[in-house]
Amino acid sequence: MIDAKYKMGGFIALAMLLAVSPLFLNAYWVDVLNSVGLYALLALSLNVILGDAGLYNMGHAAFFAVGAYTAAYLNTQFGVPILWALPISGISAGLFGVVLARPVIHLRGDYLLIVTVGVGEIIRIALINNVFGVTGGPNGIFGIARPELFGFRIRRPQEFFYLIWGFVAVTVFLFARLKNSRFGRALDCLREDPVAAEGSGINTGRYQLLAFMVGAAWAGMAGCLYASKMTIISPESFSFWESVLIFIIVILGGAGNIAGVILGTFLIIGLPELFRGFASARMWFFGLAMMIMMIFRTEGILPHRPRIFKNLDRLLP
């Protein structure tokens, strides 16, 4: 128990260090942290689907795109303030996730994986071809307004830092609660053994769908933040590679472990920036580092550990 307290203290210290970092980092490194924050949101949302529910999803960029385009469209066409669009982005991406997942959720691991890859590609192609005339085709949507919070206009990387990481903090809090809820326990159970879960009265299909919806909705909201930060979005920001990157983060960080996923984001998004000095060899080192990390930490950097209940002996006869 003491161990857990130290761990908690360590996390809080790290979080505080992160919170004051914009005061001594330059704009570039703050912006790298912003990028890390956005990907952390995406990875945390994929973690619900991939890590907690154990559903292979390699098309997460599709939900990210739905959210980003919803926000961008509402903002540029109807002048909806971009942060007001946040819940709408979440709802539309979540709904999209459910509609999509409903017919395919029963597919076995790798078959589901290729279906989600396919959906990601279909969405990207639809965006590029200016589907329904609302996505702007290959140009995307530009001229998205910067967000405003209580009359304050968020523009500089330092200001975005607090918006993005504030949202990450809320997400971590909510998802940690979710993990320990009935929902989280049900997901744990059905990931480890679907048959036993079904037998224990868990409606597996419904819980899997719920997981998909939560993950998709959160990715949609991350999309809204992304659109507000970039002020321009175009299909190439939602390519297959983005989905792969988010997938890598979750597995490499430690599927199912929130701290691990955030650490994974720092490594996967941060490393290519650290390797910038290598110019064209930068991705070579990145690939190498990825293999090495996976070989030495085969279950991810911070693997998911089964929950241990304090009073378990009381439950046993």
């Binding site: 991705m283 070579w284 690939g287 996976m294």
Partner: peptide
Amino acid sequence: RPLRQSPRLSAVVSALGASIFLQNTIML
């Protein structure tokens, strides 16, 4: 081989790393 006993997706990520590595080796 070092990943044969570990979760299946770990090997997939190692394969993705190998893909990036090979592709950039060829480019270099």
